[in-house]
Design a protein around this nucleic acid. Sequence first.
DNA 1: AATTATACCGAGCGATCGCTCGGAATTCGA
DNA 2: TCGAATTCCGAGCGATCGCTCGGTATAATT
Lengths: 211, 211
Amino acid sequence: MPSPPSRPALRARYDQRRRRVIDAAAHAFAQRGYHATSVAALLQATGLTAGGLYHYIATKDDLLMLICDELIDPLLDRARAISAAQDPPQDQLREILHAWLEHIEAHLDHMRVFQQERHVIEGEPHWHEIRAKRREFERMLDEILARAQERGVMRIPDRRLALLALLGMVNYTPQWFHPGGRLDAAQIADGYCDLMLEAYAANSLRGSESA
Amino acid sequence: MPSPPSRPALRARYDQRRRRVIDAAAHAFAQRGYHATSVAALLQATGLTAGGLYHYIATKDDLLMLICDELIDPLLDRARAISAAQDPPQDQLREILHAWLEHIEAHLDHMRVFQQERHVIEGEPHWHEIRAKRREFERMLDEILARAQERGVMRIPDRRLALLALLGMVNYTPQWFHPGGRLDAAQIADGYCDLMLEAYAANSLRGSESA
DNA sequence: AATTATACCGAGCGATCGCTCGGAATTCGA
DNA sequence: TCGAATTCCGAGCGATCGCTCGGTATAATT
């Protein structure tokens, strides 16, 4: 049972070390998977021993939840801001993709864990909050596509499939992305955005000739 | 240590029951994940007890490998045939996507396991063969895109990114696909194929105005 | 300086893990 | 029909799992 220190002078150090523990765990989970990573491995990764580690976390499950919380909340806030703004939908799509891919770049380990341990998150009931946040994010994405459709910017034969295709390509990105590689987050975001806008361009040559 | 029966009359039954074990394991792994599924859970899923189960498999790891082998080989054969044929690249793309998505539909559990346990497959050296087969499949996909580019059917700004986007959307499909749902494999394959062909259409309106 | 909260250690707990093995029951080949 | 091969059982092995707890050292507060 962990308890944050009540003495304010220690709180900052506690939070900092706690975050280091979470990040180290995210790195380990991203490489070997959550269930395949023993707490002994976490001890080696953090440099702590059992007693020390459990000073910062309650359970190993708790650690996974902390990783997901730390990841989702800031991205969800960015997405809400973009969605609430009155920009044209195609600009909103580009903005949210940039925010998303930059988030992947900045929190690569967290994202890999979040994707890889999907069956854990989808399973038990106490992951409900995380699932709800994921769904809210996907709903905002869908609404952007819907607005683009309504305003005649895009012509989408099957919006559900378009959304799932977009989710697929972005969610797959953490598995191959290398920081400092040929493509950075912005280039990938633009690539995906162009892909979607071109594929569903309302004024496409073929868009109007289909039965 | 398992040993296939030398008496030919029993070989058929042995193979059939062995496949049942593999399929049951695939179903369990797809739902809860490989490491989260205990052998005890596999015993319940198969109806066997420990001794009986290990009559058909060597180790739990072996079971995972069998699932992947059973999955990849037939799809790889189909892909090789399509790739070797002389159809126009846009037709090849559609054919390989149909084969791929039909394979996902027919072996949904296996595909989910194959995607979900990626870090197991990418990790240890004895998974080298599986990795090589995956890479061959992806290489054939890339070559189809390359041929489409060479023949002027598609204009792809970044072929690597286009390939990764396609891999992403297809590999993500097993996570949301429901057999008997609104979309079947063929419709999804066509949706993805149209998405790619439209996005990178050589005669697109915007394709020629980019800097 | 005395007191108390904090930080961390590390042996070891009970539970569960993957798996073994001797044997019983059944089936096939001769 | 009989011996051998096959199929499956299930108690239980050693190892590892996540985690606890009594203890010591250090730090902040008074």
